[in-house]
Design a protein around this nucleic acid. Structure first.
Length: 576
RNA sequence: GUUCUUGUAGCUCAGUUGGAUAGAGCGUACGCCUCCGACGCGUAAGGCCAAGGGUUCGAUUCCCUUCAAGAACACCA
């Protein structure tokens, strides 16, 4: 059976045509007056304007036509021309017994850029949203039939690396990496992520206080960018260690990338791109620097030109960003690139995107999408800091949530407590992170997010596990649940109606590139199920067809729950 | 300073081309377990949608003004 809303709007479209009304799109929504109907169509009021007719009259014409279709149980016209629709049991049963949750494959390729980890620096809380939103969007795209590629786009080529290497040299001048006369393979020196984590903040601080040190660091950065043999080899060792470390943390968040490329990869394309840009004639000189002007006549705020080359000849963030696009178009040629990054970077990306289109690195038929997200702040609404004022590491955040989850975990669970607490912790963090609209800033509140009450990950998990264990028990008792034959009992109908909305929810999330519709829908499913569950005693129901119908319905709800949780990259433990 | 974003219940937030009586969660008050997971469910109180004006049958939504908060604004990433 096709998507329910599509079916309904097709029926209304037909009815409109039969009454000689032309309309491009029929939008039906859940009723906000459930006392009058289950769905509503408000189009009669718009048609009234277009056809200069009384909207109530139009609504009644449509009503009369629709009433011949046994699909509808009740149709009424209210107020200035609202059409309220209720569906017959037969139609709902037909839908629920043959629901279509799948989407056909298409060949569009969407490239998602999210994560943005920096090499030699541990991931911090600022990296959380990008990973959560990006991974969920990627899974959503896949579910809806799109091809995807994801890249974490590592920050692996700038001054931070120069600082780290310099400090390592100061401490270990005898390493072969630093011997300019050394030939042959360099022996590994056993860099660890713990070492890197300690070295970078130290060097970074020192560079701020010590001018001489900063100069040395700049020199070191230059050596790296020139790929001096020993320095480059050390960089490779650092990269390997750091990359594995980063992958480990992303793994905890169920986040995986197709590509772990970085600025160093894009940098290789810079010379080629510069030649190309020159040929395109888009580069201009300005105050000793080379820029691409990107302002447009109707800009209210003058968009400053994109800086391509500094007056000292060096390249910048925007240069590598543009080179990254150049590289991606050349290698992967995606139809769209989505950037899931902090919304404060909007202007920067606007410049780069404009430069990309202007120089025809990206053709007009392709989409560069900026999906900026709001900042996660501390409980007090101020930027999230540790007690000593530093930025909190992502691992520490996850550990604190895990510790809290473990503390709250039911005592009668004796096995796999650690693993279960981990699943709960990740669900907690992800659900809380995806609940607000993508662009909204939100405050991290440990107690609130870990609570079992309300719109929280644990509540969703609890409800899902409840469904699962109920179905398991039914199976153990050899209760069949292959179809639904009757709609009886409190909230049974509500659950079916809620399910019809799945397609809208997924499409809205795709269009808005925000997951809050999905998290909210999961919450609705869970509460509706819990209401249904408390008011109907399912396994002890004596009427066999009612029992089977209920169990079948639960199996569908459970399935949808799993589909959605999987899109959000949340694991469901067996027990909690 | 310029531009953009935001302002919705005590708190945290939804609200999709303008629609009927503005929705959730938390918190508060009061209820519901001899029964499938009470880590659950129910009921109630709580609002001048920042303020003022405009557009129209109709505005939290669109336009203008004011106030308040936040962000961005070329040689950092």
């Amino acid at each position: 059976m096709q998507k329910f809303y599509k079916l309904m709007s097709d029926k209304i479209k037909d009815a409109l045509l039969k009454n000689d009304y032309q309309v491009n799109e029929v939008i039906i929504s859940e009723s906000n007056r459930p006392d009058l109907g289950e769905f509503q169509y408000n189009g009669a009021m718009n048609l009234a304007k277009e056809y200069h007719k009384n909207p109530v009259l139009i609504a009644n014409e449509i009503k009369t036509t629709l009433e011949q279709d046994p699909f509808f149980k009740d149709i009424n016209v209210a107020g200035p021309g609202f059409i309220n629709l209720s569906i017959s049991d037969d139609a709902l049963l037909k839908y629920i017994n043959n629901p279509d949750f799948s989407y056909p494959k298409n060949d569009k390729l969407i490239f998602l850029d999210y994560g943005g980890a920096n090499v030699a620096k541990s991931l911090h809380v600022g990296h959380l949203r990008s990973a959560n939103i990006g991974e969920a969007l990627k899974r959503l795209c896949n579910y809806l039939g799109y091809n995807t590629l994801s890249d974490t786009h590592l920050g692996d080529w700038g001054r931070p690396l120069g600082l780290v290497i310099l400090e390592l040299k100061k401490r270990n001048p005898s390493w072969a990496y630093f011997d300019e006369n050394y030939k042959g393979e360099y022996p590994k020196v056993g860099i660890t992520s713990a070492l890197l984590e300690e070295v970078y903040p130290y060097a970074s601080l020192k560079a701020k206080e010590d001018e001489e040190y900063l100069k040395e660091a700049q020199k070191m950065t230059k050596s790296l960018q020139e790929r001096k043999r020993g320095i480059y080899a050390l960089w490779q060792e650092i990269m390997e260690v750091s990359k594995n470390d980063i992958k480990e943390i992303y793994k905890r968040l169920n986040t995986h990338y197709n590509l772990y490329k970085g600025e160093s990869d894009a940098e290789k394309y810079v010379p080629e791109m510069l030649l190309y840009l020159d040929k395109q004639g888009v580069v201009e000189e300005s105050e000793g620097a080379k820029v691409i002007p990107v302002s447009l006549p109707d800009d209210k705020l003058e968009v400053p030109p994109m800086l391509l080359i500094k007056s000292d000849g060096g390249i910048l963030y925007s240069t590598t960003e543009l080179a990254t696009i150049y590289e991606r178009m050349k290698i992967n040629n995606p139809d769209e690139i989505w950037y899931i990054v902090d919304k404060r970077q909007e202007l920067h990306f606007k410049q780069v995107f404009r430069a990309a289109y202007k120089s025809k690195i990206v053709s007009e038929d392709k989409k560069l999408v900026f999906a900026g997200f709001g900042t996660m702040n501390g409980k007090d609404g101020k930027p999230f800091k540790t007690r000593d004022g530093g930025v909190m590491r992502l691992t520490d955040l996850l550990e604190s949530v895990k510790a809290e989850s473990l503390k709250r975990l039911n005592d009668n669970i004796t096995e796999n407590r650690e693993e279960i607490a981990e699943d709960i912790a990740i669900s907690t963090v992800k659900y809380a992170d995806l609940l607000p609209n993508r662009e909204t800033d939100y405050n991290f509140d440990l107690d609130k997010f870990c609570s079992l009450d309300g719109k929280t990950g644990p509540y969703i998990l609890y409800s899902t596990i409840r469904m699962k264990s109920l179905l398991k028990k039914a199976k153990e008792n050899n209760f069949k649940y292959e179809k639904m034959t009757i709609i009886k009992g409190n909230h049974t109908r509500d659950l079916i109606l809620l399910l019809t909305n799945l397609d809208n929810v997924l499409n809205n999330a795709f269009n808005s590139k925000s997951l809050n519709d999905v998290t909210d829908y999961l919450y609705k499913l869970a509460t509706c199920f819990n209401r249904f569950y408390t008011e109907n005693i399912i396994l002890k129901e004596t009427n066999e067809s009612i029992k089977e119908s209920w169990l079948y319905l639960i199996s569908i709800i459970y399935k949808v729950n799993n589909i959605l949780l999987d899109i959000l990259a949340i694991n469901v433990p067996d027990k909690m």
